[in-house]
Design a protein around this nucleic acid. Structure first.
Lengths: 193, 193
DNA sequence: TCGCTTGTCTAGCGATGCTAGGATCGAATT
DNA sequence: AATTCGATCCTAGCATCGCTAGACAAGCGA
């Protein structure tokens, strides 16, 4: 079975290569530049190979989104953990980490929320990384929801606000200079400290 | 000059027809279905005619976005005006009107914020309808910003939160059942009443 | 060494946004 | 009233897109 194992390993490697290359290309030149031809050329295979790993371009975007969700969950947890002194500092750190992730990985953030990656959200068949990313937010935000407010609902609202700030800022809809002040205002008002 | 005037009038009519048809088609079948060919067929002209009015598809999206911005500004102002009893009711009505507009006109909302319509935001050359839509929000939200908080900054944050709720809900990222409770939570926490 | 499965590539389909160049129509002039 | 001429519109086509069929070759087990 050694031959088969080697082949499976090579296949898995190539799949990772596809996702990593798509992400890299999207981050460099935007998702419009991620065509199946260019992607195939970069991984040094022909286009049909892509379709032996993914159903189509959508699934490739979805794979990048899942990768991003895992990273974001880690980034958010790390930020919350590093701010030891009280819930306020934790929430602020979380908000900054979220917006920072979106700003530093715009293409990945697009894959997660802006583009159609064919992923199910808030449903039973939601992929694990997505549920876990939400859980990471919930861990810190749940404790500042306030009395009588459902932690999940509060997290949804806080998340939506962060998402709005992230997208509008990145799309040039909000001037970039007062990002920090907007973040502080949001934390001050939404979180019950 | 009568002949020329008639021609200009016909041109303006046709331009309105293009924008209205694009909007209608997008609202019916999504923006992906709005191709230059289909659009041309619906207005009963050939494709090149579209390019004598707009630089390309982007500009058509932008035109729909501007139309939508004007309508949203009107909807928001009407909602705020109809809620006479105190700032709290005004802000709640505004939030509901905003989210309602986004839910009822998903394609137009996409044109405004999700798609690239080639429009400049938060800059000197921002088109008037966009500035006016923000002004409509500012009129009601400015008075609940709280002491020492810049009204414009507060409006940006509130707007971003509404935008986040609107997009995440519509994209299926948030379960639709608790929309109203989320709205109330947002208003309760953000607005200083 | 042979046959066969598995995997990969070449070539091509329909559809996209956009454009060049010719045809046609109507207004103005003689 | 006939003719010229300019504006207007359409046919046809280009490059590129996502995706797929079918030919081909490589590497396995017998």
């Amino acid at each position: 079975m050694s031959v088969q194992e080697r082949k499976e390993r090579e296949r898995a490697d190539r799949e990772r290569l596809i996702v990593a290359t798509a992400r890299e290309l999207a981050e460099q030149q935007g998702w419009d530049a991620v065509t199946t031809r260019r992607l195939a050329e970069r991984i040094e295979y022909s286009q049909p190979v892509l379709y032996s790993h993914f159903r189509g371009k959508r699934e490739i975007i979805g794979a990048v989104a899942l990768e991003g969700a895992a990273e974001m969950a880690a980034a958010v947890r790390a930020a919350a953990a590093s701010a030891a002194d009280g819930p306020r500092a934790r929430v602020t750190a979380l908000a900054r980490a979220y917006l920072d992730f979106a700003a530093r990985n715009p293409a990945v953030y697009d894959a997660m929320f802006q583009l159609d990656g064919g992923l199910a959200f808030a449903k039973a068949d939601t992929p694990e990384p997505l549920k876990d990313a939400f859980a990471a937010l919930l861990e810190t935000l749940g404790e500042v929801a306030g009395d009588g407010v459902h932690p999940g609902l509060f997290t949804e609202v806080f998340w939506a606000s962060l998402h709005g700030l992230a997208t509008l800022t990145r799309a040039g809809r909000l001037p970039p200079e007062h990002t920090e002040r907007r973040t502080e205002l949001l934390v001050d008002r939404l979180a019950m400290l």
